[in-house]
Amino acid sequence: MFFTATTLFIGSCTHDVPVKPELPSDDIRLVVPSNFPQPVYNFSSNTLTKEGFILGRKLFYETRLSRDNTISCGSCHQQFAAFAHFEHKVSHGIDGLFGNRNSPGLFNLLWQTNFMWDGGVNHIEVQPLAPITNPVEMDESMNNVVSKLKADPLYKKMFIDAFGNDTINSQRVFKAMAQFMGMFTSSNSRYDKYMRGEPEGTMSAEELNGLNLVRQKCTPCHAEPLFTDNTYRNNGLLFDPILNDAGRMNITMLQSDSMKIKVPSLRNVGLTGLYMHDGRFNTLQQVLNHYSTGIVHNSTLDPLLATGIPLTTQEKSDIVRFLETLNDYELITDERFADPNF
């Protein structure tokens, strides 16, 4: 009797937690680059798996997320443009309707505290809800999205693979998408390799001068290593009465936030044109001209820009040279992130 009870006890002790089969996730892991801080979102409540990532990728490139099945996330977030919309001032959504803000590049999202130009979205997992339900972007309801996915046997299989059973709901859709987009780590630009002392990390004298100028004149807003401080600032753009965009004030309702916009990362800025939250500038040269001589003064202008950022022609040229070392060609050619339908 004693022996039996003991055996049972030991048995229950070692086997009462069912062992989850090991998933082949060897190439889908969260890797924090050695020159980066710890991420804001680390998948602690959303277990990262290869199957979850693959489902998220299919959803990212899924046109059925839109009302008329024509627009996917990838329509306005193109990999070759570091997931911005290449050469689009603003993007055209469903029925050819235009939004009023430039489609931003998507990378290093795990290090972002808030999303969208006005920071209105507070979590990576609920971010896709905004474009999916926006009437000028994808104009679809999550109930319809879930119904469409449930009708497709392939999705049924992919949800089982990713989450262990065939429940399809918006929570799983968004968690899978966070697994996919969260993996867009951009940390292999030539600048990064230079900073990590890697063999390919060579920089010319002009590029190094540009880096020093950015450190002197563009911080703390565009601080290394992420090249954004995740704040909202009025950077002295001329107010566009047609767009009539109050920026951060739309979210906080504070007059003091009028015309403030999230500081974007400078990473991949050579790939993500056009520039500014409304895509008003075509080139980086125009952006630098704005900061050196184009600042418009109004009550919420960032104090750091009160006198502009004086730059010589040579300095602007060196800064542009440096900014191009922030292009991450590994990000934009990574096969894991490509549209699986092609």
Binding site: G120, V121, H123, I124, L129, N134, S170, A178
Partner: peptide
């Protein structure tokens, strides 16, 4: 309100979640 996507009564598909200002 700040913990990412929820389910059940809190599923954003219920139409009780602001997408533009979480």
């Amino acid at each position: 309100n700040v913990s990412g996507v929820q389910t059940g009564a809190l599923d954003p598909a219920n139409g009780m979640f602001w997408s533009w200002s979480s």
